[in-house]
Structures are given as C-alpha cells and as structure tokens.
Design a protein around this nucleic acid. Structure first.
Lengths: 247, 247
DNA sequence: CCGTCGGGTTGACGTGGATCAAACGCAGGG
DNA sequence: CCCTGCGTTTGATCCACGTCAACCCGACGG
C-alpha cells in the first residue's frame, strides 16, 4: 500500500468510527435525534474489527461483552450440539446486529462466522445500556431491534414447522432479495454468500434437496441460477409458490 | 360467593397488585433491588386481567401497548398465515412474559390464547421503558429476558431443523418438566394443558405423529401417559434419545 | 497444460412422517 | 341413562425428502 493510500485509509477509519457520521446510521440507529444526542452516540462504538472470510467474530461459550453492528460483509450464526448436529440460525448483512443472544447469560450461545471479508463495529453492551438510559429514542430503538429479532425467529419457526422444501427456499430467496433491496442493491440479482449446505442447515433441508429445488425453480423459469449467482425472473411466481401450495 | 369471601378476595387483589409484594417476583423481576427501587416497581403494573380458557389475551394485528406477565395459568402463542397454516410459537406459564413480539412494530404479530383459566399482569410498555431508565437492574433484567427469548427461539429452530419426531417430543417434555420443577411442581408428573394438535404445531409434526410418539414412549417405559396426564418414568432415557440418536 | 479438490448436480432408492380412514373413550347435555 | 361430539389412538398406505453414490465443473497449484 502506498503512503498516500495509507493516509487516506487512516482518515477513513477516524471519520467512520463516529456513529453520528456513519452512513449506515439509518440502518442500525434511531433517526431524528437531537444534535447533542448525536454527539453522545459517538461513545457507543469502542472498536471496529475486520474479519477475513471464515473468521469467527465470536464463538459459543465465550464471554459476552459487546454486540456487533455489521458495517460491511456477510455473516452466519450457528448453534452446535455435541453429537455433531448444527443449525444455522441466521445470516446477517450490512446494518444488522450480531450477539443479542449473549445478553441473557453473558455467554455467547452461538458462533458468528464471516462468510466474506467483513467489518463490524463493536458496541460494548454496558455502554449501550448506559446511553440508552440517557437517550430515550436509542433505548426504544434497541428494544425494537431485539423484538424484531424475536419476530424474525417466529417467521423461521413457521417456515421450518409448516412449509415444504420449495416453499422454504422461495421464502428464503424473497427475504434475501428484500434485504438487498433495502440496502440499495438489486433485489433481482445477487450473489449468495453461503453454500448449499449452509442454506440447507438454515432451512432444515439437506444440501441435495436445496440443489434440486434450485434446479426445479430454474426449469420453471422462476430463477436463473449459476453457481451462487442468482437472478430472480419471476418474483410473483415465487410468492405464489410460498403462500399458496398445500392447504 | 359469601360476603366474607368477597372481602377476602378484594384484599387479595389489592395486596397482589403490588409487584414489590408479589410472590412471583423472583420469576419476572430482577432481584436485589434497594427498597426505594422496590417501591417504584409498584407503578409498573397497570391492571390485572383474568381470562377464561380459550380467551384471547391479544390478537395478531392489535395495537401493542403492554407486555403481560403470567400470574397463573397457561398460554400459547401462535402465528397464522392466510392460507390457513398456523404455527404455535410458544407455551407460556407462570412468571413468563407475553407480548415481546409486539414491540418492534407496535402491532402484535401473534395471537396469545389462554389454555386454561389464567391471570396476567399488564405492564404498559412505556412505563417499563421509563422505569428501566431509572432502575438499572430492571433495565438489565428486561434485556436479559428478551435475549433469553431469542435463545429459546434458536433452540426451537434447532429442534425443528435437525431433530426427528421422537427427539422433538422428548425435548419438549424435558423442557416442560424442567419449567414445572423451577416453579416448585413435580418435574416427573404433570398435566399437559395443550392438545396433541397444539403440540404437533409447536413441534412441526402432525397430531397423529405426536400420538404415536407418546404411545411408543409408553411401550419403552419412558413415560406413563393417560390422556393429558404425563408421568416421566425415565428422564435419562428421554435425554439419551434426544441427544444421541442419528448422526 | 493437467491433476486435484471442494462445492454442486443428478440419479436411484429407502424411509420417516404425512395422509386417509376407522374406531375408541371420556365429557357434557338431554 | 343414552346420545353426541371432540380429542385421541391405531392402522394402512403414500410420498417428500433423506441417503448413498456417481459425476460434473470451475478454481487453483504445480
């Protein structure tokens, strides 16, 4: 890296560490704060952390101290039990929070793993609690975020408990699509960051079943699939498949 | 009801509405508060509400204002989608909280239904947020409760995603057993408050499968089942079945 | 350029649980 | 007391998905 690039990078780091300036503030923080409240926010983040693909952000069993906001990149969280089974419990992208599960016992209960090179802001939980006693909108926003996680989990339970394989995959793809769209990316064309096996684990299916469902969607002209590159050709078709099939 | 009984009942109501006096405080509130903090707690609960078996505590779509602490009785929460499918997302018993899902959008996202005559304390959410800005342990406790809900949901995802029918039922029964035990009831013998169909919905199984699993457990001398009355004969056997089977 | 390797696809077959159907048994009402 | 009805049990059959296995393909290293 040239000296100039290094300098530029340093500036970048300093500027971006301030939450009040962060360009994803609207994703992970409340909006409409007073200027003096905005200033306080900059105490929130203690450090940023870069991770390479495959790195663990935290592991099940580690002491919980911070939650993390994804600045860039892509993560999965999973739970393992002794006998080797594991369940992917979620995929997190830019602006989403990781680590909420650790609050209850002060120990992380799942692993968080970067699926591509990523960057996170570490938010020491005690800071967050302190600040949210002072800034009501922050408190309320945080509660909403936790609640949203609960609602999301209920959605996954619904999916795992009542849907068949192709419905699950359709729901999954539509959800991803919608989240990419919310971040300004194309909702119709994106790269999956996870393997068929990881999708399967999340959806309660085997990787072969996931693969077959992709192939079938392709035959039906609902998708164009090339490796992990997905193009959605017929959103309505996917939606119909999801809500409609079976009684 | 005699006049005396009515009077006694009235006193009972007044005494019990104070959280600081509530005999289930240790279940739903933080412990070790200072006396003046304890006093403030009594602002928390706005009303108590009695429900008959089958009554809705709230419905999906209603405006969210309060969370509810179960004082006595038994509830289920479920989510429905248009096409008729529904998924039971949880069963709640004494000391557990209901309604956390509503915080995110200020609209309840599931139905909460009493499975037996029950009684709840309504905790207006804005009061709770206000008080938890003043009482740090209350704030922290509340965060833990929400986080515990997330962890619980991950457990259910694990169950739905990776376990086979009998493992699911074993896990479910052991969980119930442990929760009864924590409340001072027998962990080995209890009445199910829910139908086979509701168990099935929670576990992602059909009622026939649940019934067969019960019968099989009985053949294996793991349980004695008589209608909804369950006696666990071999806890270790159930545990082994749960963690051990399949790779 | 070829060999290797890991992830993905495809096929053949087996099976756990769903589905369909019948019968049971307890509770509540007449 | 019997009738009715709902929740449950049990049996027979079916099928969606898992399992096992072969093969493909793009990436990467020698």
């Amino acid at each position: 890296m040239s000296k100039n690039a290094a300098t530029a990078r340093l500036v970048f780091e300093i500027v971006k560490t301030a939450c009040s300036n962060c360009n994803l503030r609207e994703l992970c923080l409340p909006i409409g704060l007073a200027p003096e409240e905005l200033k306080k926010l900059d105490e929130l983040v203690s450090a940023r952390r870069r991770l390479k693909r495959g790195d663990y952000l935290y592991r099940a069993g580690q002491v919980f101290e911070s939650i993390y906001a994804v600045r860039s990149g892509f993560f999965k969280t999973d739970v393992l039990i002794e006998d080797g089974r594991d369940q992917v419990t979620g995929f997190q992208m830019t602006g989403e929070l990781l680590g909420l599960d650790g609050i209850s016992s002060e120990i992380h209960t799942c692993n968080a793993i970067a699926l591509e090179d990523s960057e996170v802001c570490a938010i020491p939980f005690s800071h967050l609690e302190g600040l949210s006693r002072q800034i009501h909108p922050l408190q309320h926003h945080f509660h909403k975020v936790m609640s949203r996680e609960i609602v999301r989990d209920h959605g996954v339970m619904m999916l795992l408990g009542t849907m068949r394989a192709e419905e699950r995959l359709a729901a999954f793809l539509l959800n991803l699509s919608q989240r990419f769209k919310a971040r300004g990316y194309s909702p119709a064309e994106f790269n999956l960051r996870m393997s068929r096996d990881e999708i399967g684990s999340y959806l309660g299916l085997k990787l072969e079943t996931v693969s077959r469902a992709f192939s079938h969607f392709q035959e039906e002209k609902l998708l164009a699939v090339h490796q992990r590159k997905i193009r959605i050709l017929n959103t309505e078709g996917l939606k119909k498949l999801m809500t409609h099939q079976r009684g």
